[in-house]
Design a protein around this nucleic acid. Structure first.
Lengths: 211, 211
DNA sequence: TGTACATCAGTGAACGCGCGTTCACTGATGTAC
DNA sequence: TGTACATCAGTGAACGCGCGTTCACTGATGTAC
């Protein structure tokens, strides 16, 4: 199962032809769009169907319920997160390291800006204990966490002021996720996006290298 | 309007007597309990009413809808956050500072452990752009943010590696909130609570003092 | 190139259920004398 | 201390609406010859 050519099936197990794939895609897109306009609480199957100009019956050919589409959207979006790992690899020393840190923060915020609604819902569902969402999120985040932890370990072996590298990495991921979700509100309070990126990048760089 | 003796009224504007106050409280408590068991998406007025052994009609005497109770619960919970500001005040130098940082992280996690469900929903609603929840959250968090920013400014005036103090403070708040919401899952991945507290405290201390 | 048939995809219409919401009423509590 | 009345608080019952869900059917596309 390669990431972009999965073998998709409908609710009765039939494989999807090209026309069906397109319809499914439209349902996914509509779901993401509506998630940005409506609260999850108020999102109905029928809204999604209406948005693509089809009937609810069509929806049920592809998805079991609202949760099911939302999960599919989240899966699609989570795959998109662009080459995060390459950004982490290599030396973190000095200015090059700081540039790396900035580029990670930037990429994170861009990704969240493009897919705020879904990512928020993914994280909420995961926090609420929904296993499917939790697994999806772990699958997305854990390579990042592990890479970061590794870098921290490399640079700061034996430094007692780090604590557990994985914990420090988790703290860094927390900054990335929360600020990405939240930076618009902060901008209203007078903290500019650049300030946020710069501060986070510096904290990240510092935490990784100890410099 | 003092924090614990607000003048409460029902939906038609009548002031609440003691019996009514108790009923209202039971509805609030039931709501918080159910939020921990059910996803917000599936929480109905009738569930809350049933939980306290009363009828939906009673519910509507006190609250407009589910959002309205949830907001009231969130308000109650947000007031509870215990003396955060005192924990921040004073010197952050050396071991004393590190102890301060630990105590803040601890207090945060404890508070979230006690009220996970509501706080999560509060933040989601706020992120989704619901103004009432956003204001409530800002009211709760901004004293903390401002105090932290002030301390950072004090200790690190002129240090170019901080970035904007408010942005750094926001990054610290992000760690606190996200890890508090999330530490259980991390524990399943083998990062202990102590590691998390210790790492976060060290990052916090370091960010405030530059040490 | 055309025709017949098979499969794929989409949908109208119907049904029932459960929830939101309201109102007129009952029962409980408080107050005056 | 008891009785009458006023206000407070709670609720049963009813209504309608909208959504979830399914099924039998229609229309579209593909394939064989």
């Amino acid at each position: 199962m390669s990431p972009d050519e999965e073998e998709l099936v409908d609710q009765s197990g039939r494989q999807l032809g090209p026309r069906a794939m397109a319809t499914r895609k439209r349902l996914l897109d509509a779901t993401e769009k509506l998630l940005g306009e409506t609260k999850l609480r108020d999102l109905r199957v029928i809204d999604i169907a209406r948005e693509v100009g089809t009937s609810a019956a069509t929806f049920y050919q592809y998805f079991r319920d609202v949760d099911d589409v939302v999960l599919a959207v989240a899966e699609q979006v989570s795959q998109e997160i662009p080459g995060m790992l390459e950004r982490i690899a290599g030396s973190w020393e000095g200015d090059e390291g700081l540039r790396k840190a900035r580029s990670i923060v930037q990429a994170f915020i861009d990704h969240w800006d493009a897919h705020q609604a879904v990512l928020r819902v993914r994280n909420l569902a995961s926090d609420e204990g929904d296993e499917r969402f939790a697994r999806l999120r772990a699958r997305t985040m854990s390579p990042l966490l592990m890479q970061l932890a590794e870098r921290i370990e490399e640079h700061r072996a034996g430094d007692p002021s780090v604590g557990h590298p994985a914990a420090a990495a988790a703290a860094m991921a927390a900054i990335l996720e929360r600020l990405a979700a939240y930076h618009r509100q902060l901008e209203n309070l007078g903290v500019s996006r650049e300030d946020l990126v710069e501060s986070s990048a510096r904290i990240l760089h510092r935490t990784v290298t100890g410099a």
